[in-house]
């Protein structure tokens, strides 16, 4: 259902525009607000050069932000014209794997945070790539594989099935410290991947969790088809059960998180 812009979001828009006075609200729809204009900044990571630049950007902010993330496009044609890989076909910039975006945003969960922690680092990365031909912060693989890789890195695991088990558990039961850790260590979550799983649980919404589960399942399935892994029988049953549930309307999943 369409949501009107909240007072809190209005405040965040005002904060963003006062930090970047060349930006302005250009369009208000029922469920989203669009902010556009030149975004001029000078950005520097700790150990790399500073880059001072301005991009013409357009930011479409769902009124449910930060539950749903804004879409950012670059309207000056610099990124699209550069044959840069990390752009969706509709021109939306791919700022990162969704859950990573949420994790980064959680450090400053406002619109200004979105711009300064996600959009500007992305634009910095683009400029750096143009100049040096490499990504200053690395890049994620495309599609489900990139998502799987992100979870492998995040959880410090080598086994895609362990990641699949973890995301299945989060989907079905949310975060539960007393569970056996899905990584297969035999320990309880509170003694094992506590921080990582808790972080994921906090940054995900039922919707994003479901999307990531599907993506990781797809990535594992691709490996299975290539003969790179096989699903153990008990896991197969669990997966089938969850996949079947996921095909039903989302509130069934949401109820798992109602206890949060």
């Amino acid at each position: 259902m369409a949501q009107r812009v909240t007072l809190a979001l209005e405040g965040q828009i005002a904060e963003l525009v006062s930090a970047y006075p060349q930006l302005a609200v250009v369009r208000r729809r029922q469920a989203e607000t669009t902010i556009a204009g030149p975004l001029a900044f000078e950005a520097a990571p700790d150990d790399l050069e500073a880059i001072s630049v301005s991009f013409d950007i357009e930011l479409t902010v769902p009124h449910t932000f930060p539950k749903r993330l804004p879409r950012a496009t670059e309207t000056g044609g610099r990124i699209r014209g550069a044959d840069y890989e990390h752009v969706f076909t509709d021109g939306t910039l791919c700022l990162g794997v969704p859950i990573q975006q949420r994790r980064v945003l959680s450090e400053q969960p406002t619109l200004l945070g979105f711009v300064e922690r996600l959009l500007i680092p992305y634009l910095y990365g683009f400029c750096f790539w143009r100049k040096h031909g490499r990504h200053p912060f690395g890049e994620a693989a495309h599609g489900p594989e990139g998502i799987l890789q992100h979870y492998l890195d995040l959880l410090g695991l080598d086994d895609p099935l362990a990641v699949l088990g973890a995301i299945r558990l989060l989907c079905e039961r949310g975060y539960d410290a007393r569970q056996r850790c899905p990584c297969g260590s035999g320990r309880r979550v509170r003694d094992c991947h506590r921080a990582a799983l808790r972080g994921l649980h906090n940054h995900h919404t039922p919707e994003t969790l479901r999307t990531d589960f599907r993506a990781i399942y797809d990535a594992c399935h691709q490996r299975f088809q290539r003969g790179q892994l096989s699903f153990p029988r008990p896991m197969r049953r669990q997966l089938h059960r969850l996949l079947k549930r996921l095909q039903r309307p989302t509130h069934h999943l949401g109820s798992v998180h109602a206890s949060r």
Binding site: A19, Y20, P21, A40, F41, E42, A43, A44, P45, D46, S52, S54, E85, H86, V87, F88, C94, L95, G96, V97, Q100, Q101, V104, E107, E116, R117, L118, I120, P121, Y122, Y124, G125, F126, H135, F137, G138, E139, A140, A141, H142, G143, G146, H150
Partner: peptide, 18 residues
């Protein structure tokens, strides 16, 4: 005003959905 300075730490990696 001069350009706003942004310090980048712990950024996300660019990705593409498909």
């Amino acid at each position: 005003t001069p350009r706003r300075r942004v310090h980048i730490s712990n950024p996300a990696k660019p990705w593409r959905s498909g």
